[in-house]
Amino acid sequence: MDIATFQAYGYFFLTAFMVLVLYGYIWHLYTAKKKYGKDYEEYADIALHDDITDKPVEKISDEEKK
């Protein structure tokens, strides 16, 4: 297999893989609310409530206790 063929295969399969991952991600984003009760739009609040005295949207220490 010469380098050009290798390049072509590499290109094709990696692109196909990346496309699958990207579409999988879209699927995940838009079904997450139903499946896990997780709403991505909540994260937008990170910017709006960003004072040092504001409560974090997801506190880091809570998760670590799990």
């Binding site: 380098i3 050009a4 290798f6 390049q7 590499g10 990696l14 990346m18």
Partner: peptide
């Protein structure tokens, strides 16, 4: 994701 293009596009040509 960002290294992918370089890997496929550029590196082989240096051979």
């Amino acid at each position: 994701a960002i290294a992918f293009a370089g890997l496929v596009e550029i590196v082989p040509n240096f051979y």
